[in-house]
Design a protein around this nucleic acid. Sequence first.
DNA 1: TAGTGGTCTAGACCACCTG
DNA 2: AGGTGGTCTAGACCACTAC
Lengths: 238, 238
Amino acid sequence: MPLFRAVKRALLQALESGVIAPGEALPSERELALCFGVSIGTLRHAVDELVAEHILVRRQGRGTFAATHNADRFLFQFFHVERRDGLREAPRVELAAFERVRIDDEDVADALGIRVGELAFQVDNRLLLQGRAVVHDRITLPANLFRGMTEKRFRERPSTIYQLYQSEFGINVVRVLERASAVGADRLASRMLGVLPGTPLMQVRRTALGFADKPVEYRVSNINTAQHDYVSLHAKPA
Amino acid sequence: MPLFRAVKRALLQALESGVIAPGEALPSERELALCFGVSIGTLRHAVDELVAEHILVRRQGRGTFAATHNADRFLFQFFHVERRDGLREAPRVELAAFERVRIDDEDVADALGIRVGELAFQVDNRLLLQGRAVVHDRITLPANLFRGMTEKRFRERPSTIYQLYQSEFGINVVRVLERASAVGADRLASRMLGVLPGTPLMQVRRTALGFADKPVEYRVSNINTAQHDYVSLHAKPA
DNA sequence: TAGTGGTCTAGACCACCTG
DNA sequence: AGGTGGTCTAGACCACTAC
């Protein structure tokens, strides 16, 4: 294994274990290089990769920081709905239901790497853009990863959902896998989005992964694409 | 502007102008560094970015090559439909129609950066996976970029569509922007995909960009997601 | 064996930010 | 002024590939 990758693993370990907390500054690159016994170039190579994965954030003149799940990161990395004319706007999120359930869907269990019958929290949210319901999310969280989760804590989170996971449960969503298809609106979606049953909707099934690609959340989004699009981020690199 | 970015631009210029043709090897990194008058580290920084954008391909021990549009690149970078169980397979592409048209849709003209009324080629393809029609594509190509295009050349292309653009018209698709929504199948889609009119389909609108982000193709894909998904590539970096 | 890219070093100097 | 990341240098050695 290349040295820079070993350094990267060590940094990831420090982040995962909480030795470096979200939002905290890392030691300077010179210090880190000294501490790991590598040259500054090698240290930077490792950090470069973590920055590309949005796990670390560099700020010139200030330092390198463990990324936090703030509103901007949500909007630009994890929210993929945009008005057709390209306007990207943070949604208003309304909690519609919060339940403790036993997972009964094999696909959900598979995605989360657990078994049917295990306990989970199931959260339904309605997302509004410019006052109109556009998305219905059903989020499934493995109960054993979110011990102490309550409707109150979920509802009264100060910031984004992933920020809640990060600050209250030590769970860092690092990236997501998404698969989409078109479906006709079912009763629930019809009611939540105010469309006729059978209306074509986009259904996005997301598995959110933490460090080491551990699944931490499964989410099914039903999107009313009458005036909005799902935007695939093949964003410009560099 | 940083030096490595100037080097990157020079390399891009060499690729765009055909000084380095697709599939050709670049001079070695040592030679290039010497030629540009920069250190090997700086040269590599520039090349690293182009590799990340899939414009160059490194092969250890062999050299660095200008990327070609082969079947693999199509499948893994530009084809986003997968069977629900995760099987990714190259589609069989059937040419359904080839016409010279005047662009009458403002959205299409906007996407291509040209005006309504300009000449274009419009190609309809049907994509089959395991013998079943899953996707209908309507491709629009600005006529002034594809001088000499004929149905015969399109139909008898030896490899992928983007390979045809690259080898016959000197047009390199570098990346694509995609926006998706759900629609009910119209008459055409219904016939091409063998589904009832109104069946929910995913519609993906793609703008393909060449060097300098110049739009070179607009494509609308209607996807029957009964057994397949559209997969968003938030692929694992590194 | 010779040539390529992949990794790594041990610095230097600059631009930027904060006190 | 002092510290941070951003860029750049001029090499070295290694692993891989082809002949």
